[in-house]
Design a protein around this nucleic acid. Structure first.
Length: 518
DNA sequence: TCTGGGGTCCTAGGACCC
DNA sequence: TCTGGGGTCCTAGGACCC
């Protein structure tokens, strides 16, 4: 830890929700929840108006709906978030070359590398206030909470102390008195499991932690964690701000609204995910040797199987073959008959180069046909809230709610920021004309040879009229953060939406009764 | 029909080698 | 005749973070 408060931590307030409120004026001052809208979705971000009702990140969307039924529930628009994040990170990098992003909405900045006359507390304080104003100005009004301290740990704790839109500077030398009364869970790495172990040892606060010897802590939580805790409890933290970090793995996973039991469908989904992973590897010039599948069972137990190849690959076909083979191993050794709620594929052991193919082109082999028609996206039978529709004489429009064959769209113009709300039949051609263009092949832009089921219709609708397969497809792609689908996320979201029955604000039709879970 | 998605890091055991 | 270590790689699982 340093003699001066020269580490800055910046955290954009309720970031995703704030971007939505910025872009959709009628949402300002109203509860907004961004996250998965499917049956198994969770909240990514809740606006402060929604937090009043007890809605918070990681809560199931179902729970959030029951706590705050009048909120607007939106799926993410990651291109917009990335764009705003890029503006902020750019601002920070203009300040110091040492910027360490932690996510789209958070970063450390090392002020020792900034162009400041000195690093005394009044100087860095004034600097941070100016930076906050600049962030707001550059992003169209997004606010940030900032913390300054003598280490990363203290700066991060500090940024949490005055949220939203605040600044806290922890004066050098006052760290321990700040930390001592706090719960041990303020320390990064102390989550529910560690907190419970500590609690059983009578440790609740940082002061409690400080009173325990390093040996004892190691006994309680293990070697690495224990020594780390011993130091952080004393505000001892020398971790440098690191600008560039190399990725260690790339993965794609999906949780399905209906548990999977059909092997061939699972193989098909793994194959599609393998294509997405490969596309991202190629895009970033990476390849990896270890291929892992992840399977979460109906009871939430999670199993992984991995296999390491002799040389790295970035090839969809290879990743898919290994993934299917690992699934076969798993089916032979574990009981998946209860159903699978999540499937995923990842590649690790990354190298920033691709092995020349010494054996004449593995990928030249025809990829074996996936023996199932994968569900493709259902086309616009349902309309997820938050879907943007193209501009027209009505102004900018976006879907406020949908259900029972009715789509409610809210329009905004310069004159009427909280403009008219109109309802349309879901098959209204005008509505469809407003949609963004359809992506060429939403399933797999990377590998056209990859078998992706043909037309949607024959696989989407069950005999009982429910749409579980389509819903699975929807859930499969709701997690897309845009790394893969550069082709129009909005369009994709629009395509795959399920009947969420969102009734935000009571403006839309009531929830759609017969859904995937009916 | 509680419990997302994309990551990182750590632990522990077994294989294998010297 | 008893049972050594250390190092590395691989696999599986779990905690944690945003």
């Amino acid at each position: 830890m340093r003699a001066q408060a020269s580490v800055l931590h910046l955290d954009l307030d309720a970031f995703f929700a704030s971007v939505e409120q910025r872009d959709k004026p009628s949402l300002r001052g109203k509860p907004v929840v961004v996250g998965g809208v499917g049956g198994r979705g969770v909240v990514s971000t809740a606006s402060y108006e929604a937090r009043v009702f007890g809605v918070h990140s990681a809560m199931s969307t179902r729970e959030a709906r029951s706590r705050c039924p009048h909120a607007a529930f939106l799926t993410g628009r990651f291109h917009a978030y990335r764009e705003a994040s890029g503006v902020v990170m750019g601002l920070l990098r203009a300040v110091s070359p040492l910027v360490e992003p932690l996510s789209l909405d958070e970063a450390f900045v090392d002020l020792e590398r900034a162009d400041l006359p000195d690093l005394e507390t009044p100087t860095v304080t004034a600097f941070a206030q100016r930076l906050r104003r600049e962030v707001s100005a550059a992003t169209g009004g997004l606010t940030a909470s900032v913390g300054l301290g003598t280490s990363k740990f203290i700066a991060k704790v500090a940024s949490d102390l005055d949220k939203p839109d605040g600044l806290t500077v922890v004066a050098p030398g006052t760290e321990q008195e700040l930390l001592r009364p706090m719960k041990a869970t303020v320390i990064p790495g102390v989550g529910p499991a560690t907190a419970e172990r500590l609690r059983r040892a009578g440790i609740v606060t940082v002061a409690d932690l400080e009173a325990v010897s390093a040996e004892e802590l190691v006994r309680i939580v293990g070697r690495s964690h224990g020594t780390g805790l011993w130091h952080l409890a004393r505000a001892l933290d020398d971790r440098p701000v690191v600008a560039e970090r190399e990725a260690k793995s790339v993965s794609v996973e999906g949780t399905y609204d209906t548990d999977l039991t059909d092997r061939r469908l699972m193989e098909g989904l793994l194959t599609r995910q393998a294509g997405e992973v490969a596309a991202r590897l190629v895009k970033h010039g990476l390849s990896g040797r270890t291929i892992t599948i992840k399977v979460r069972l109906h009871d939430f137990t999670t199993v992984n199987r991995s296999s390491t190849l002799p040389s790295p690959t970035d090839t969809a076909g290879t990743i898919a073959r290994v993934a299917r083979s690992l699934l076969g191993d798993l089916l032979a050794s574990a009981d998946l008959s209860g159903g699978v709620r999540l499937l995923g594929v990842g590649v690790s052991g990354l190298a920033d180069w691709v092995q020349e193919d010494l054996f004449g082109g593995t990928d030249a082999e025809p990829e074996p046909e996936v023996p199932v028609d994968l569900p493709t996206m259902r086309r616009r039978e349902t309309w997820p809230p938050g879907l943007d529709v193209e501009h027209d004489e009505m102004g900018r429009g976006w879907v406020w709610g949908s259900g029972r064959g009715v789509v409610t769209v809210r329009f905004e113009t310069a004159e009427t920021p909280a403009g008219p709300v109109r309802s349309y039949a879901a098959d209204d051609p005008q509505l469809h004309a407003w949609l963004p263009p359809e992506p060429a092949d939403p399933a797999d832009p990377a590998d056209p040879a990859e078998p992706v089921g043909p037309a949607a219709r024959d696989t989407v609708t069950d005999a009982d009229g429910s749409t579980d397969v389509a819903a699975q497809s929807a859930a499969d792609s709701t997690g897309d953060d845009g790394e893969v689908g550069e082709v129009g996320e909005v369009g994709e979201v629009g395509e795959v939406g399920e009947d969420t029955g969102d009734d935000a604000g009571g403006l839309s039709a009531p929830p759609d009764a017969p859904g995937p879970r009916a």
